[in-house]
């Protein structure tokens, strides 16, 4: 019953994606062109990438607000090392190392000290962004080799699919398989639904959560690398504020903030929905403030609407049952 309701939500988000595409096409003839859709999707690639691991973290009833700061820190590290003469592959590797460590630190504070992840990651949100400034200061590193910037900016040869988006597609499929097809994935649902019961059932809750935070850090490092190359610019303030967009996308995708409910399909659909609505409204020159309001309303209604529907349904059932009894 619950499961069906969930699929229903994801289905409606997917339907909304198509409605938004259709609406965009009606609003402007320039909207449904291959090149515009290519820009539009490239635009939210970092948010899309980070939303995958955020889905897993929220599934186990935790949260990671520091993702955008880790992105910024990794971008700064990548830029600083490249400027210091490191070969690019090594610099990228180092950025991933930093991202993994940042995630590990979050995870240790949450799992070993038992601190609430909301509080920990508010702290590391400031800490990691601050470290990014320590690393790079007010400098902006540019002039990356064309090979790498093309990876960030270019499309798959012969298509209009941006390379970061192709990367996202691959990772989304992997995440979906892991989440929905492996014991590890199923354990996330168990932990999110009832952590104490999961512990009693012998699940390694601490280790699972720790690994999720490390994964989240690594994904932010990847997003940081993509961001750096896509804009050919490493700066300490890269992507600040993205954490709220990531969380908004995940929640809109039907992942419960209390954990235990949600799917990768929902998140992916929601990422596209937000991106397409934003794109469609921008192309008809709807101002930024309206976009902000629309994002907020989408988020609220994504949770409010199913709740109201459930209430209507249960009221109807109750009435029907009442009639049957009498």
């Amino acid at each position: 019953m619950k499961r069906r309701g969930l699929l229903g939500w994801e289905l409606s988000v997917i339907v909304l994606v198509f409605v938004a595409l259709f609406g965009g096409a009606l609003l402007s003839p320039d909207f449904l062109t291959a090149s515009n859709l290519s820009f539009l999707t490239a635009n939210f690639s970092e948010v899309a990438l980070m939303s995958l691991t955020m889905t897993l973290i929220i599934l186990v009833a935790e949260i990671d607000l520091s993702v955008a700061s880790i992105l910024g820190l990794c971008s700064a590290v990548l830029g600083a090392l490249f400027a210091a003469g490191w070969p690019m592959p090594l610099a990228i590797l180092a950025a991933f190392g930093v991202g993994g460590l940042a995630g590990l630190f979050n995870g240790l504070l949450v799992t070993r000290l038992g601190l609430p992840s909301l509080a920990v990651t508010i702290g590391t949100l400031a800490l990691y962004r601050g470290l990014a400034y320590v690393v790079l200061g007010d400098k902006a590193i540019a002039d990356f080799p064309a090979f790498y910037t093309n990876l960030g900016f270019g499309s798959i040869p012969g298509t209009q699919i941006p390379i970061p988006m192709a990367l996202f597609a691959v990772l989304a499929v992997i995440t979906a398989i892991v989440l929905h097809g492996t014991a590890f994935g199923r354990s996330l649902y168990a932990i999110g639904a009832n952590e104490i019961a999961a512990r009693f059932a012998g699940l390694q809750v601490t280790r699972v959560k720790l690994s999720l935070f490390v994964l989240s850090g690594l994904m932010s490092a990847l997003a940081g690398t993509v961001y750096t190359f896509r804009f050919a610019s490493a700066r300490a303030d890269n992507a600040s504020g993205f954490e709220l967009s990531v969380i908004a996308a995940v929640l809109l995708g039907g992942v419960s903030i209390f954990g235990g409910k949600g799917s990768v399909v929902g998140t992916v659909a929601a990422v596209f929905l937000i991106g397409i609505i934003n794109g469609a409204l921008t192309i008809v020159d709807v101002s930024n403030e309206i976009l902000t309001i629309v994002t907020g309303l989408l988020l609220i209604f994504s949770v409010l609407l199913p709740n109201l529907l459930a209430r209507v349904r249960s009221a109807r059932e109750r009435r029907a049952r009442g009639r049957a009894v009498s």
């Binding site: 320039d30 909207f31 090149s35 515009n36 539009l40 635009n43 934003n278 921008t282 192309i283």
Partner: peptide
């Protein structure tokens, strides 16, 4: 994203 939109327009 604004530059891209202006190109599309």
């Amino acid at each position: 994203s604004y530059i891209n939109t202006l190109i599309a327009q």
